[in-house]
Write a protein that binds this DNA or RNA. Sequence first.
DNA 1: TCAAAATAGGACTGAAAGAGTCGTATATTA
DNA 2: TAATATACGACTCTTTCAGTCCTATTTTGA
Lengths: 134, 134
Amino acid sequence: MVRLSKKVEYGLIAIRHVATRSNGELVTAKEIADRYHIPYELLAKVLQKLSKAGLIVSHQGVRGGYTLAKHPSEIRVSKVINAIEGTLPMIAQCMSEGPESCGVFSVCTIKSPLHKVQANIEQAFNSMTLMEIV
Amino acid sequence: MVRLSKKVEYGLIAIRHVATRSNGELVTAKEIADRYHIPYELLAKVLQKLSKAGLIVSHQGVRGGYTLAKHPSEIRVSKVINAIEGTLPMIAQCMSEGPESCGVFSVCTIKSPLHKVQANIEQAFNSMTLMEIV
DNA sequence: TCAAAATAGGACTGAAAGAGTCGTATATTA
DNA sequence: TAATATACGACTCTTTCAGTCCTATTTTGA
């Protein structure tokens, strides 16, 4: 519980790797998969999501690959996570899926403290950019 | 991903409830289960863990139940979580289960930023006591 | 022009974790 | 001694996660 998914880990490692080659050079999914011992197909999907989210740019075809779409300082970790998971990390179900999703919501007495922690975590992911990871 | 378990939610709600009756009055698992619509057996186990961890005191027998073991200001949320889960929330596997558990560890390039976030989360749970939840 | 190399993406499988249930034992009280 | 509580292991069911498979599409260069 309260663990980042492997996809997010792989995504962060991957986009960081792309960032290190930000001289315009293309990086392929295969290259990253080999280098970090990440299952290729899984990584490929993660990269596709990062691409669809506009964090990296994809180039199809024979000498294709990926490059960063923006400067590392403009890529927040929260955006990377959001791109991969479709949502930010939420420590309680009611936060991500709404009050109806939680059978306890109406009588729940710990909403406000949990929101505090939640804000704290979001802040951590939001304030961290690729810049400080590279 | 990055979600507290239902057990932890129930545990926090429950121990907070016990705290509100801290005039020495006993609170039963059944009472809490009814009041918050929590499955009784599940809640019972959670309370047992809190009891074993010394956060609440159990009284068996007919007019038994639970009371707080300490002053609310001395009960950190991190302790509650730890009692229930056996470990604090760790955002990466290598943190809770060691380097060998992660196939990527040796070449992982995001350890240090993740540790930063981890420290942040721990701080949040550590600095929050029952006092501010009641 | 066509084979090779790359991304795109849906469908599927297997394993692990999470949530909840069941059954039984033990302690305490009235 | 019956009723009411906690104690606790074993089990089931469901969902999520990680990973695989398969096929399509795009692009390059020989």
